[in-house]
Simulated scan of single mutants.
Amino acid sequence: MATAASLARTGIEVVPTGAALGAEVRGVDLRTVDAAEFDRILAAWHEHSVLLFRGQGLSPDDLIAFSRRFGELDHAPIQENGRRFVEGRPELYVVSNVLGADGQPIGSLGNGEAVWHTDMSYLPRPPKASMLYALEIPPAGGDTHFASMHAAYETLPSALKARARGLMVKHDGTYNSGGFVRAGVTPTDDPRQAPGHLHPLVCTHPDTGRSMLYLGRRRMAYIDGLDLAESEALLDELWSYATRPEICWKNQWRVGDLVLWDNRCTMHRRDPFDAAARRVMHRTQVKGEAPPMA
């Protein structure tokens, strides 16, 4: 473990965004991160939840190697058009609207809006972190927004905080963030019958001990034990706090950007962009080490 003195000597500069979350990390090449630099990055990630590294020149293997510093990696998920990953590297998920020479998409999620969500929260043990690396970006649109679930919880009125504690929310597994039905799932209009998993509505971050809302996504969510109308009303009230502009930050992408976010305490969404423009991103996902805990 690096000492405070060695951390100060790394040359890394952490510049907070000024928003409720997020910081830019400067002065580091992610291809050659040493132990002291990684400790500095890890501490900044725990403090700010989302980190931006600009001007990186990462090969697929470089991105995988840096991502593995945070834990074991998931394979690319099966999305609306199957499993899209870099050939020979199943950990490297391709997010893109581009069509290949065969006329088939090279990636997933197209060019539409991706609604507010937490990655794969419908699983019993969701991933703890995700990274997205920009290879090609459109001239406008496609920006990614992040919301702090620590700040969302902290800004709840006291009575609403008390009501939320101890409740369990069902995280729906019917639709992905682009609104597409997941492979093998038959949609239903009743969130109580939809596939998914129950998690605490208020969780404790395993590394920092801070409390946070854990909402996942709004569509087809259900609060266990309530009648449907009461669940819908409570979720609407919670969501009215969860994505307020004052607890959000947006990254306007540049080629060479890598963004790392803590999937346990943030939500994110994507703006739509012109279907005729090209957007090619590589994403990795770090496996969760434990289920979300109250």
Results as ranks from 00 to 15, higher is better:
Y153L: 14
K161R: 11
A162S: 11
K161H: 14
L156K: 12
A129W: 00
E136G: 04
A140E: 07
H150W: 15
A159K: 14
L160V: 13
A140S: 13
I137Y: 14
L132C: 04
L160C: 15
P139I: 11
A147I: 12
K128S: 09
S148V: 00
P139M: 07
H150P: 03
Y133P: 00
D143P: 13
L160Q: 05
A159R: 13
G142V: 02
A147V: 14
A162E: 07
S148F: 07
G141Y: 01
A151C: 08
A152P: 13
F146W: 13
P157K: 01
A134Y: 03
S130K: 03
S158L: 09
M131W: 00
E154R: 03
A151M: 03
S148A: 08
A159E: 15
P157M: 13
Y133E: 02
S130L: 08
T144V: 06
S148G: 06
A151D: 01
I137L: 14
L135C: 11
A134V: 05
T155D: 10
P139T: 11
S158C: 08
P139G: 10
T144L: 04
G142M: 11
S158A: 12
E136D: 07
A129M: 00
L132P: 00
A147N: 05
M131K: 01
H145G: 11
K161Y: 12
A151S: 10
P139Q: 09
S158F: 14
K161G: 06
H150V: 06
L132R: 01
L160T: 13
T155M: 11
Y133N: 07
M149A: 03
A147M: 07
M131T: 01
A134N: 03
A134K: 02
G142K: 05
L132Y: 03
S158Y: 15
I137A: 07
F146N: 01
M149E: 06
T144H: 03
G141F: 00
A152L: 14
A159C: 08
L156R: 12
A129D: 00
Y153S: 15
M131N: 01
P139R: 11
K161T: 14
I137S: 04
F146M: 11
A162N: 11
P157L: 13
H145E: 12
L160R: 13
A134E: 02
E154Y: 09
T144A: 05
L160G: 10
P157V: 04
P138S: 05
A162R: 15
H145I: 12
G141S: 05
T155H: 14
Y153H: 10
A151V: 06
H145K: 10
H150N: 10
G141P: 06
T155K: 06
M131F: 04
A152F: 07
S148N: 06
Y153G: 10
H145S: 14
D143L: 07
